[in-house]
Design a protein around this nucleic acid. Structure first.
Lengths: 168, 168
DNA sequence: CCATAGTCTATGACACGTCAACCAAATGCG
DNA sequence: CGCATTTGGTTGACGTGTCATAGACTATGG
């Protein structure tokens, strides 16, 4: 038993490794994106989420759900991105309260320029380090953990797999 | 191949699941800690790191290394914690540039009060959802990913396993 | 011993994320 | 219809994390 926490030593060690790994990974990806494309990971995920939609636009609420963000975070983020002309807001015609967030030409351009390098980085730092069985284990484990915390969010993430392909 | 990113669909799906799982996990833990003990995860990790040292103090540089944080982040964090009396700075006698960060009585108290609930939460949300082989896979995978990015940080985390026990 | 280079830490500015409070439009029900 | 409730979204304040920079001290080479 750990001196302070009621978690056994091995588990605690795993926790530290996991947390540290994630921190370095996120930081590295953020730096690369910032350096090469002048955007943050948050910017990137909004851009790509929009780009995957047929009309390249989403309601802010949907965006929040898909990204698993708080609504207010989406709002702040969109405000910042709008100021940099990566994205634009338009009022919703059918619901007076609603707002559409759409990709601008600049947003499309930035996303295009950023994608290849970013994907390569994720591959190099993450996927290339994982063996197939580890990927499988990480996937099922992630889903199980997420499902236990927030079944809805879990379902939404799982649905992405189907949602992104059928543009065909 | 994904429409935008040069990563195959399955990998991309895994990436989303992983990122989303981590976000929810971190948020949930932060909320619980804030609610139950009035501190953040960052506060907690500083407190526990200090508590594990014989003298319950560390140089800010060591703290940064052990936590895998930027030095400036440590500095800001310690400033905030000092203001709330969780921690105290003292000048280093042997190196005029250095600063020790030590636990205050209040810090010890808060840590003690927070530990059990926090550990229970980590166990419930994370460890209880993982089967043994998944834990093993996640551990080795985390170390491999971290080692590829930052061998030093990897070594430091690995050393923690030995550093915390040998008080015996 | 002085100059210079390197180390340890702090600070300021800024982007980010969360919470709580809020507004406005839509819905539901008496 | 009319009023309360719910829903979609924004805002402000605040704590947090990063970068670039600065300041104070130490180590080193002439």
């Amino acid at each position: 038993m750990s001196p302070v926490l009621d978690v056994n030593e091995q588990d605690w060690q795993l926790w530290r490794e996991f947390v540290t790994m994630h921190r370095h990974l996120a930081r590295e990806l953020d730096r690369q994106l910032q350096r090469d494309a002048g955007i943050s990971q948050a910017d990137f995920s909004v851009l790509i989420m929009l780009s995957e939609r047929p009309q390249q636009q989403l309601r802010t609420g949907e965006l929040a759900e898909l990204l698993a963000w708080e609504k207010s975070r989406v709002s702040h983020q969109v405000t910042r991105m709008e100021a940099r002309d990566l994205v634009e807001r338009t009022d919703c015609a059918t619901d007076g309260r609603g707002t559409w967030v759409g990709l601008t030409d600049e947003g499309r351009r930035v996303l295009r320029d950023a994608s290849a390098d970013h994907a390569a980085k994720i591959r190099a730092l993450f996927f290339d380090q994982l063996h197939e069985p580890e990927k499988a284990a990480l996937g099922t484990a992630s889903r199980r953990i997420l499902d236990a915390m927030n079944p809805e969010a879990c379902e939404i993430v799982a649905d992405e797999a189907r949602a992104t392909v059928p543009a065909a």
